[in-house]
Amino acid sequence: MIEEFKIRLGFENGGVLPVIHISGEITSEAEDEIVQSYDSIPADKKKRVILNFTDTSYINSAGIATLISLITKSSENQGKIEFAGLNNHFRKVMDIVGLTDFVLIHDSIESALSQS
């Protein structure tokens, strides 16, 4: 069963910490929405952006490529992308493709929000 992709941008910790909540499947169809969500964050709030994968069910190579381009874009602007809520499988995938060398990974969105 294909789970519909959904994305929601929220601001946590008193409105200063952007969190992109991703649910469903991250494929090439998700790229535009993910990039647009990131681009819609005000520049002064892009120092630290969290991607919440708690409700993500699937990611393919095109989805990984989207994440890589987001990480690259962020680092070019002296920002950081952090991942939260990856299940064990996704965590292994991120490790295999080398993304864990470039992002901070939190076990849960709650632990990510508790770090300032």
Score class of each variant (00 low, 15 high):
1 M>S: 15
2 I>L: 13
3 E>T: 13
4 E>K: 13
5 F>I: 08
6 K>M: 13
7 I>N: 04
8 R>M: 10
9 L>I: 05
10 G>N: 12
11 F>V: 05
11 F>K: 09
11 F>D: 04
13 N>L: 14
13 N>M: 12
13 N>W: 09
14 G>P: 01
17 L>K: 05
17 L>D: 06
17 L>Q: 14
17 L>G: 02
19 V>C: 05
20 I>P: 02
21 H>V: 11
27 T>Y: 01
28 S>Q: 11
29 E>N: 10
29 E>D: 12
29 E>Q: 08
30 A>R: 01
30 A>F: 02
31 E>M: 08
33 E>T: 07
33 E>R: 14
34 I>D: 05
36 Q>C: 12
36 Q>V: 11
36 Q>I: 12
37 S>L: 02
37 S>K: 01
37 S>Q: 03
38 Y>M: 07
39 D>W: 04
40 S>K: 08
41 I>P: 02
43 A>S: 12
43 A>W: 06
45 K>Q: 14
45 K>T: 05
45 K>Y: 11
46 K>Q: 08
46 K>W: 00
47 K>R: 15
47 K>Q: 13
48 R>M: 12
48 R>D: 10
49 V>C: 04
52 N>H: 01
54 T>I: 01
55 D>Q: 15
56 T>K: 00
56 T>D: 04
56 T>N: 06
57 S>P: 10
58 Y>H: 14
59 I>V: 15
60 N>S: 04
61 S>A: 12
62 A>Y: 11
62 A>W: 07
63 G>I: 03
64 I>D: 05
64 I>N: 01
65 A>C: 12
65 A>H: 11
68 I>N: 02
69 S>Y: 04
69 S>K: 09
70 L>M: 10
70 L>D: 01
70 L>R: 03
71 I>E: 05
72 T>D: 06
72 T>K: 09
73 K>P: 08
73 K>G: 06
74 S>Y: 04
76 E>L: 02
76 E>P: 03
77 N>G: 00
77 N>H: 00
78 Q>C: 07
81 I>W: 03
83 F>E: 02
83 F>I: 02
84 A>L: 00
85 G>F: 05
86 L>W: 06
87 N>Y: 07
87 N>H: 01
87 N>S: 07
91 R>Q: 13
91 R>E: 13
92 K>S: 14
93 V>G: 02
93 V>I: 15
94 M>L: 10
94 M>D: 05
96 I>M: 09
97 V>E: 08
99 L>W: 01
99 L>C: 00
103 V>S: 05
103 V>C: 07
103 V>P: 06
103 V>N: 02
105 I>Q: 00
106 H>A: 10
107 D>M: 08
108 S>E: 10
108 S>H: 09
109 I>N: 11
110 E>A: 09
112 A>Y: 02
113 L>T: 07
114 S>Y: 10
114 S>F: 08
116 S>V: 15
116 S>E: 15
